[in-house]
């Protein structure tokens, strides 16, 4: 029983990190329609920028600020140079997916060229643990959970205060009509990409504290985030968090009883089942099923 509680506890922390990536991915995908696979590249870029600056200055505030700046600049140029022109050409999702794959390849190979392929870890950055009865939670895990919750809450407050829900819904439904009604869709798109990317980079920095970072480590979590996005299928933050935690618990169980390598296979088997058999409930079936 204790093991089960421990698995759940660890999964909740990992699930919160996954949910940050998934919220960012979902936010971008559901509004702009871009299947932003290079989210994985942006994720690792944030962590690398933080690691590099921390190694130079030994100051967390400077390192994290620098990471955010790098991510914002990177995603700004990605949107301006690649996604926005494709959007103006009325390119479909497959085109943006291909462009996104190209960007991902470029980003991770630049990082590999600059820093090498080996894992980068900030040794003993934060050590120690807390004991809750029979259960131990490391200080890093506690920080991860608290910051993930705070970041999600900030995002929710932003959505509420900025009253941008309707604007975003309008852009998602019909960008041209939105323009007619005076919405600056270009600015809104950039904001969406920046917010989504900053959320992913927070998750990346938090994950880096525990397990380090290498150029390829962003793809696995981004792929799992895409599964969460497809399962939830709409921009509902609470559902994304719930699905993220549920999926992480499932992955931990698979890891415990089978093998860590099966977890992605089984996660994507679930995605396949949902794409094929899930009817109207969570997802709009018409979008997916080839009725011809």
């Amino acid at each position: 029983m204790e093991i089960v509680i421990l698995i759940v506890l660890n999964s909740v922390v990992s699930g919160l990190l996954l949910s940050l990536v998934a919220i960012g991915f979902s936010y971008i995908f559901n509004i702009t329609g871009v299947f932003h696979l290079s989210h994985a590249g942006v994720y690792v870029s944030g962590a690398y920028a933080c690691w590099w600056m921390f190694m130079k200055t030994n100051n967390w505030f400077i390192a994290i600020s620098f990471a955010f700046a790098v991510v914002v600049i990177l995603i700004y140029f990605i949107e301006k140079i690649v996604y926005s022109p494709l959007n103006k050409q009325k390119s479909n999702q497959s085109i943006s997916l291909i462009a996104s794959m190209g960007l991902y390849v470029v980003i991770i190979n630049i990082l590999a060229l600059l820093f090498g392929n080996e894992n980068k870890l900030i040794e003993n950055s934060i050590s120690g643990s807390f004991q809750f009865g029979n259960f131990i939670l490391t200080k890093i895990q506690l920080i991860q959970a608290i910051i993930a919750v705070l970041a999600t809450a900030t995002f929710l407050i932003y959505l509420k205060l900025s009253k941008s829900n309707l604007t975003l819904q309008a852009i998602a439904d019909n960008e041209t009509i939105s323009k007619v009604f005076g919405i600056n869709t270009e600015i809104e798109r950039i904001k969406i990409f920046i917010i989504g990317s900053v959320l992913a980079s927070i998750a990346a920095i938090l994950a880096m504290l525990e397990v380090g970072i290498d150029p390829y480590s962003g793809m696995s979590i981004t792929l799992t985030a895409t599964v969460v996005t497809i399962l939830v299928s709409r921009m509902n933050v609470l559902l994304i968090i719930l699905f993220s935690i549920a999926l992480t618990i499932l992955q931990s169980i698979i890891e415990w009883f089978l093998n860590a390598q099966w977890k992605e296979g089984i996660t994507f088997f679930i995605l396949l089942l949902v794409i094929l058999f899930k009817t109207e409930g969570i997802v709009s079936y018409n979008l997916r099923k080839d009725r011809t």
């Binding site: 690649v82 022109p85 494709l86 390119s91 085109i95 291909i98 462009a99 794959m101 190209g102 960007l103 991902y104 390849v105 470029v106 190979n109």
Partner: peptide, 9 residues
């Protein structure tokens, strides 16, 4: 990767 992005674009 750059070639792929440029081709698409």
């Amino acid at each position: 990767g750059l070639l792929l992005v440029m081709i698409v674009r």
